[in-house]
Amino acid sequence: MKNKKFIYNYHLMLFPGVILLILFQIIPMFGISIAFEDFIPTKGILHSPWVGWDNFKYMFNMPDSYQIFVNTIVIAVMKIVAGLIVPFVFALILNEALNRKFKRTVQTIVYLPHFLSWVILSGILINMLSVNGIVNAVVQAFGGDPIMFLASNHWFRLVLVTSDVWKEFGFNTIIYLAALTSINTSLYEAAAIDGAGRWKRLTKITIPLLIPTAVLLTTLSLANVLNAGFEQILNLYNPIVYQTGDVIDTYVYRAGLLQAQFGLATALGLLKSVISFILIAISYRLAYRFANYRIF
């Protein structure tokens, strides 16, 4: 009896959230049918002519498609890999600094970029990476020629990855640092008594104990293979780097909003959602099987 009353209240608590989800997430999903239509505004979603897979066929025949997918995956994978290694290494280094005050200060500073928007950071980056900017001043100090970072297909992806790592690495160390604090200090003490030096303790105790966390994070990041970072790229790219920097999301944005190719844009977006869904399902399974971790 009491239990029933509880369950009724549970539904009640979920009610507002569910209503909002239905209103703003589920209902717009009917718009996905635009992907299969020659969408004509006056006729609306319900009455526009149905064209089946035409938009998808056009998409696959489009010379840009290949490049967009390659760019998306390459950039995303580079970001994932760098985003796993850098925080890992940084957490290890930070762990070696014993002065608590110093450690706290460094932590506070490195988390900060995570909280700034790409709009703000792009404004800053464009300045810093220009030929007169601070980065090129350093390059020239070492005798190099100034580099046009944002207008070179050679450098653009590296800029994306580096700036992304720069923004997120501090924040991503949090989990590692937590895992580090949970390591039993008696392990180190025992190792020290056995004569293991600093380096040995690092490689034999600390790293092996962090590996499971790293594996878990890797698995979870699988879901991001098609997310190369829309806001970042939108605010940093220009036509000359479309070749290496144009990704699915930016293409969908231009096709849909600037060129009014609604069918094409929706089709591309749908394809991306489907692939992402599959990837998340896979990572959910992997995480559960190998790390015994349920994401939700």
Binding site: S130, V131, P146, M148, L150, A151, N238, I240
Partner: peptide
């Protein structure tokens, strides 16, 4: 003879 950076 053309601004090296004109692309940006």
């Amino acid at each position: 003879l053309i601004d090296k950076e004109f692309v940006t």
